[in-house]
Amino acid sequence: MSSLINGMTLVLCVTMIGAALVAIRDKRLPIAILASGLVSLIASILFLVLAAPDVAMTEAAIGSGLTTFLFFFVLARVRGGEQDGADHD
């Protein structure tokens, strides 16, 4: 039981770090925003594993739900600006 949870935690951590790397490196901004939402979602599962259900609920509702949509509202407004500053990398 304990080793199962440990293994699950490890998988979650690795996935979360992979999603974070996608979020800052991917050229397409919508993908980056969705990946950052995924980081929050996995973090909320991690909070549940760490015995913090209150924090897990908050992170799932706020971090991965509302924040992602705030980004998309702004993204829809700045059409054409998504790639600004990307050509210098």
Partner: peptide, 22 residues
């Protein structure tokens, strides 16, 4: 250098701080 990307990065750092605290 894109402002929205910088804000996404700040969100990720924010999540990291929360995980460390919990």
């Amino acid at each position: 250098r894109n402002l929205l990307r910088m804000i996404v990065a700040f969100c990720i750092a924010d999540t990291g701080v929360n995980i460390v605290l919990v």
